[in-house]
Design a protein around this nucleic acid. Structure first.
Lengths: 154, 154
DNA sequence: TATTGTTATACTCTATAACTATA
DNA sequence: TATAGTTATAGAGTATAACAATA
């Protein structure tokens, strides 16, 4: 028995080099946030992608649909289904751009504004909960570090 | 013209409340890393999930398959395909655990060790590239902040 | 010719339930 | 009865190519 390699038990298992990789850590932290987001917004019909679109349309009424996608890193083909979904739910008003009739300009309906405001309240509570041991300096520092990575997008 | 709301142009469009949300920032930063990872490892057949499994099996030869999944947040049903894939490629040796014949214990083959070492070199280069303006203090600080979020996993 | 939104399609990752063989 | 791995399946997110309408 002393000669055989010990079989790793649950507690003694290590991540190996993975624990030093920023890509892996980001992936896991992002998954934790996403999972708690889903739990917190359950039943509202709001998903991360939908909220992203609502936020940009709310802040920029009459914004071009393709522009919203580019801001979020969503290709135009993949914008169609979520925008349809929210138009059918009566959250988003989608109109042909009179100055370029190929394009759509988006804005929130009154119902969309209400949904957005409610979701934002729930999301702020969810973030406050997951990040309850983060003070405002921690949060700012984290956002700043993440922004430097986002800026490397290409 | 002075009365009509200006239509947002690409440059003037804002993310709205999204820019303050840690969940969104993590999602985008993680996507930037994932995208550059894919580009850097193109042609090797290595994906993020596969490398995660390789790293744990490398560090813990003879580790239980289900344990690997739990470490990575992958459910047992979703471990089958990637492990099959790497067993068929001859990277992973999968054997019945003699002390519990329901279970599999995993280790890397010589070919698997070679693939893992090569991939790690490429991944370190990819991380150094994306994080070229991060000094070691920045990296450590980021990992520490992310670890605090990971710890909130439920 | 180029661009906007669309459709169709495919692949990865993820989530759940039910099965088998062992324990 | 509980657990490990498996199978089947379905839902999201994402990627590419080709099309119609418009620029």
């Amino acid at each position: 028995m002393a000669e055989t390699a010990p079989e790793p038990t649950e507690d003694s298992v290590s991540l190996g080099v993975l624990s030093d990789l920023i890509g892996y850590r980001l992936r896991r932290a992002s998954a934790v946030m996403a999972s708690d987001f889903s739990r917190a917004l359950e039943g509202t019909g709001i998903r991360q992608v939908l909220f992203g679109i609502l936020s940009i349309v709310d802040a920029n009424p009459g914004v071009n649909q393709g522009t919203v996608g580019r801001m979020l890193g969503i290709q135009r083909a993949n914008m169609v289904a979520p925008v349809n979904e929210m138009a059918e739910r009566g959250w988003i008003d989608r109109q042909t751009d009179p100055s370029d009739r190929r394009a759509f300009i988006l804005s929130l309906t009154a119902a969309g504004e209400t949904m957005f405001a409610r979701a934002l309240t729930q999301i702020r509570a969810h973030e406050a909960n997951v990040l309850s041991d983060f003070d405002s300096r921690d949060r700012q520092h984290l956002v700043a570090l993440l922004a430097r990575i986002e800026a490397r997008e290409g």
